[in-house]
């Protein structure tokens, strides 16, 4: 009985990707080797807009970044991507199929994936996030 109660209480956490979990999303294009940054953002998310220029810097330095735009409206997503001029691959996820798998507790959400496993998660916008990520991936 205790197990059932605990399972119900923590079920949302159990289904979210956490440190050490293997990423099994085929359409992300993540290979089993190498470091990838999976960044979830949307046009209406002001913190994401603040953070994206720093992520662009990381991409320019050679970090593999995969952006996931979770805008439900494709036109909003296209306009946003045009404005931001991102230098990395972006997958549009209007139905939330990909983000549902990751199930982050907040936006923006960044997952650092190394050799197919999540090694760190960052939720919300942070100053100097590029430096933090570089220190994490040892680049």
């Amino acid at each position: 009985m205790k197990r059932v109660i605990l399972y119900i209480l923590f079920s949302t956490m159990l289904f979210a990707y956490q440190k050490g979990d293997s990423v099994n999303v085929t359409n992300l294009g993540i290979s089993s080797n190498g470091v990838y940054l999976v960044d979830f953002f949307a046009s209406w998310c002001n913190s994401c807009q603040k953070e994206l220029p720093l992520i662009k810097k990381l991409s320019a330095k050679g970090v593999n970044v995969i952006g996931i735009d979770v805008d439900e409206n494709i036109d909003d997503a296209n306009r946003f991507l045009q404005d931001m001029k991102l230098n990395f691959r972006v997958i549009k996820d209007p139905k939330g199929d990909i983000i549902k798998t990751f199930n982050p507790p907040g936006m923006p959400a960044i997952y650092i994936v190394k050799d197919g496993k999540v090694i760190d998660t960052i939720f919300g916008a942070h100053d100097n996030i590029d430096r933090y990520i570089l220190s994490k991936i040892g680049a």
Binding site: F40, A42, W44, C45, N46, V70, D71, E72, G96, I99, K100, N103, P104, P105, G106, M107, A109
Partner: peptide
């Protein structure tokens, strides 16, 4: 969910 808050963020 956090990614469904488009309207709330307006």
């Amino acid at each position: 969910k956090p990614w469904q808050k488009e309207i709330l963020a307006k």
